[in-house]
Simulated assay, not measured.
Amino acid sequence: MAVDVRWATIKDAEALATVLCEMAAHYRQAPLDHGRATATARQWLDEESSAYPHFALAFAGREVAGLASVAIAHPGIDLERLMFLKDLFVRDSARSKGVGRALIGFLAGYCLDKGIGRIDLTTEDWNEGALRFYDRLGAERHGQKVFLRLSGEALKAIAGY
């Protein structure tokens, strides 16, 4: 299967929304309203900086096949920036067809072109498929960090709301 990967633009809002809705269902979240997801995707893509795009989309033929959501952080090791891969998701219909590898390859090429020294990511400890995928790519497991989250009431309390 030929896979084309590119940075998403506002013209890709519908495609991004399609993947976001399928991703929510896959992770057993409440279903997303496709219209609301499209409007949100359009807003996000309209606000994206051309210097640091945040969504890469993979297409197989004319169909959207997956996404990578990333952020660039400063500074990294030796003053090299780092890319944080927040989400990598491949639609069920495109699994095991090279879409995830194409997305990661696209991101790796971007990093090398822009002087970004590494890609950091997390995955759930129960997600054996993702762990095998990243192992095959040569990802190193770093157990020295603890993943923490501030959200909901804790976020409000810290902000003084």
Rank of each mutant, 00 (worst) to 15 (best):
residue 62 R to M: 08
residue 123 T to R: 13
residue 74 H to I: 08
residue 69 S to L: 13
residue 54 H to M: 09
residue 61 G to N: 10
residue 50 S to M: 08
residue 53 P to L: 00
residue 65 A to V: 04
residue 77 I to K: 11
residue 92 D to H: 12
residue 87 D to S: 10
residue 124 E to R: 15
residue 117 G to R: 07
residue 115 G to E: 10
residue 85 L to H: 09
residue 94 A to M: 12
residue 100 G to T: 04
residue 79 L to D: 11
residue 121 L to A: 14
residue 96 S to Q: 12
residue 126 W to E: 15
residue 60 A to M: 15
residue 61 G to Q: 07
residue 79 L to A: 14
residue 75 P to H: 01
residue 60 A to F: 01
residue 70 V to F: 00
residue 88 L to H: 03
residue 59 F to R: 12
residue 112 L to P: 01
residue 55 F to N: 02
residue 97 K to Y: 00
residue 75 P to F: 03
residue 90 V to H: 05
residue 102 A to Y: 06
residue 109 G to W: 06
residue 129 G to D: 14
residue 122 T to Q: 13
residue 78 D to C: 08
residue 49 S to C: 08
residue 54 H to K: 03
residue 81 R to D: 13
residue 131 L to V: 10
residue 59 F to A: 00
residue 54 H to A: 03
residue 70 V to P: 00
residue 88 L to C: 04
residue 77 I to N: 08
residue 59 F to V: 04
residue 77 I to V: 05
residue 89 F to Q: 04
residue 83 M to N: 01
residue 129 G to W: 10
residue 88 L to R: 02
residue 52 Y to G: 02
residue 102 A to D: 03
residue 97 K to R: 14
residue 50 S to G: 14
residue 84 F to Q: 00
residue 55 F to D: 01
residue 64 V to W: 02
residue 92 D to W: 04
residue 106 F to V: 09
residue 119 I to G: 08
residue 97 K to H: 12
